[in-house]
């Protein structure tokens, strides 16, 4: 049926979305979505505004649990232990301990740069200074921010520029050694130069973590991702290697969207 599918299924899989449905109250926002996340690869979610990209991303770390009336159906399986992240018996806090998230707008806490980075450790009850210091440095280095902030770790995070704040949020997400990183349009509030640096960062990060990224920017999806999923009106229309999706999409709707967006 599809030659590339066969190839993908032979890759190590980090997570699998299976027959996933999502409701905001009565509104059926995601319909029967099934797709894999390959280990240590970048998967991009693309599609027109309102198609459900953020909804899918936020299901992975159970953000929808924070609001009443939301309903999950189906499964999101995390490997290697095959935990169903959506199982009501699975504590959402446990889930969020394994998957980190970076939001569209930088949202540093009203704390120092240092306290922001080690927030995840604090929340996990780590108090040993040397461990915290090491973690902070490691995460800030990984987020390519260490050089810029090492002399002012105890300044307030709000004193940083927008791009630095977003990298701080990435450092914060990395400091807990997540298995999967979830990005929701992480560069849409940033200028092109900062965007390029964050894309470069994502490229480096995939050596260690599996990444799922929502983006409106087709060039960005083409540049950073290995796999792309095209969504439309709550359905997954097409999933495959990024080159294939961009060069020879199988579905007419994908083709229209991509040609339209590339102009």
């Amino acid at each position: 049926m599809d030659p590339s599918r066969g190839a993908i299924s032979e890759l190590p899989i980090k997570a699998e979305v299976r027959n996933f449905n999502f409701h905001y109250g009565e509104f059926h926002a995601l319909k029967d979505v099934t797709m894999p996340l390959c280990e240590r690869k970048v998967t991009a979610l693309i599609g027109p505004s309102g198609c459900g990209k953020s909804t899918l991303l936020r299901s992975f770390n159970r953000m929808h649990d924070l609001y009443a009336g939301n309903r999950y159906g189906g499964e999101i399986i995390l490997h290697p232990d095959q935990t169903n992240l959506l199982d009501p018996r699975v504590d959402p806090i446990e889930v969020r301990m394994r998957l980190s998230m970076v939001f569209q707008k930088p949202n540093p806490f009203p704390k120092s740069i240092y306290e922001n980075v080690i927030y995840g450790q604090r929340v996990r009850g780590v108090t040993k200074r040397s461990v915290l210091d090491d973690k902070a440095e490691e995460a800030l280095r990984a987020a390519a921010l260490w050089g810029e902030v090492k002399h002012r770790l105890h300044d307030m995070a709000f004193a940083l520029s927008g791009g630095q704040q977003q990298r701080l949020c990435i450092a914060r997400a990395l400091a807990t050694d997540p298995e999967v990183l979830l990005f929701d349009e992480p560069t849409s509030a940033l200028d092109p130069i900062v965007t390029a640096s964050i894309e470069e960062l994502i490229h480096q990060l995939k050596e260690k973590v599996t990444i799922l990224i929502v983006t409106h920017n087709m060039q960005q999806a083409a540049r950073v991702s290995d796999f792309t999923a095209y969504m439309y009106l709550g359905e997954l229309i097409e999933f495959g290697y990024t080159e294939e999706i961009f060069i020879k999409p199988r579905d007419k709707r994908t083709e229209d969207y991509i040609t339209g967006r590339f102009g």
């Binding site: 770390n61 953000m63 806090i93 939001f103 949202n107 927030y119 807990t176």
Partner: peptide, 11 residues
């Protein structure tokens, strides 16, 4: 957004 950031860290 701040609360979500905190919850997303497992708080």
């Amino acid at each position: 957004a701040l609360r979500e950031g905190s919850y997303a860290m497992g708080a």
